[in-house]
Design a protein around this nucleic acid. Structure first.
Lengths: 248, 248
DNA sequence: CGGTCTGTTGAAGGATTTCAACACTCGTGG
DNA sequence: CCACGAGTGTTGAAATCCTTCAACAGACCG
């Protein structure tokens, strides 16, 4: 496997790893809406979940597919992509361990609005919608927590709309880099490194532009010593200047 | 008051109207997340709500203001607007009787992300966040219903993002007109009339463009006999052709 | 070491914004 | 009751940002 790696990023590959019961419990406890459950309750919940591994790039479910399960990221990163007839993709979200995906309220709208795929090698826990709904009915604190997270995602989505309709591309790219840095940033020596492999296409699909335009924006940032970048990796070296560009 | 009205729209003015208890109960029962409560429970819930009237254009709460209450539209239309530093407004949503507004999960994020204003004369019921949260805790069916509605708004928001990033202005305007027609459309003789007064600026703020561009798009639709329009009103006369433009 | 995927850069073309001037409508006040 | 003015809608032309097309350079993998 990858032996001559040159990127500064961590290796996310799973190999033949299999999630032990202990790891699963630990990860489930990390999920924000299970945080307040007792260990006994958590064990009960844990039995309803099953685990699956996905290789980088492998799809987890497809757009328009029937919704049957709710999923939680345990290891790796998951991307939610909306494909369009125009052939332009939209990267709706990048998920970290602890985050859920797959519509939690799959009552009427029975199909997924987006495709979920493992962005890196990933380990995913999933629970049937029926079990999840009964869980929500029985534990009001879990339901309220899921509501809070969903409301926060709505807030972020509207923030994104604000950026798309009022900001020029360069500012949008700056905002996305800041956001990614907050969520995935690691280290502080030569600036904060964004700990997921991202192509110019990924960034373009997040900001709603073309790869070329993103490339030009980032080239500009690089000349101003705001970021450092290579193939599939970016580090922010001057977050102050980046903020100035984003908000100025 | 308005005596020489020439628009084809209904008169939304309230005059000295005051909501009777019966009207309030009826309206509360219309709210999707109270739909399943018994009359007795509904009466209990009703006591927690207070009613207020707003004239057209009057603000209900301001962006960045502290969140203290959750509100429900009883009469009239309410607009949710996000103001930006660039001076460009974004019309996030237009609400009908029965719809709630004001973040239902006001736990950490303590301030409103948008300004709410009465678009027409409006009657609004409101409940304190504390009472609302305890309501969610005690009635799991209400909590699940609120979750469903929030998840659906997230879906719509992402759909909007899709339109903003992949479609040219003309198609976006067509989509918004279709949406407004589905939500506010009335009658069928000379086409479906959108039953709220809308300016070109309102439409521009919904589609993320300028008033001039919206005007050009609608002029074009009018020449193709797809819509009929006047000052602050629009009717769709050929929804099939409109759909073709939106999706073609 | 070659092929493929990824990233860069230039230049032309296009869609939309912006600036500007004008027309129309409504309702208020003379 | 009419006229005027503010708010609203329309249209043209120039300027601009971004996309698209194209060619190439560099990195990674087997």
């Amino acid at each position: 496997m990858a032996s001559r790696r040159t990127t500064p990023l961590k290796d996310y590959s799973l190999g033949t790893h299999h999630c032990s019961v202990e790891v699963r419990m630990e990860k489930l406890a990390m999920v924000p809406f299970f945080a307040n459950l007792s260990e006994k309750e958590l064990k009960k919940v844990n039995r309803k979940f099953s685990a699956h591994h996905f290789s980088a790039g492998e799809p987890i479910y497809y757009q328009n597919e029937k919704i049957t399960r709710l999923r939680v990221v345990v290891h790796g990163a998951v991307q939610l992509v909306r494909h369009t007839l125009e052939g332009k993709d939209i990267l709706l979200d990048m998920l970290q361990p602890g985050e859920y995906f797959g519509n939690p309220s799959a009552e009427r709208r029975q199909t997924h609005e987006e495709t979920a795929a493992a962005h890196t090698d990933a380990c995913i826990l999933s629970i049937s919608m029926i079990d999840f709904r009964s869980l929500l009915e029985n534990y009001s604190e879990v339901a309220l927590s899921v509501l809070d997270i969903t409301a926060d995602r709505l807030r972020k989505s509207r923030e994104h709309i604000r950026h798309l309709t009022t900001l020029p591309v360069k500012k949008r790219v700056a905002h996305i880099l800041k956001m990614l840095c907050d969520k995935f940033g690691e280290g502080s020596r030569n600036g904060r490194l964004i700990q997921i492999p991202l192509t110019r296409k990924n960034l373009a699909d997040m900001t709603g532009t073309s790869t070329e335009t993103v490339s030009r924006a980032i080239s500009d940032f690089q000349q101003q010593d705001i970021v450092e970048t290579g193939r599939r990796w970016i580090a922010i070296t001057d977050s102050r200047k980046l903020s100035e560009i984003a908000d100025g």
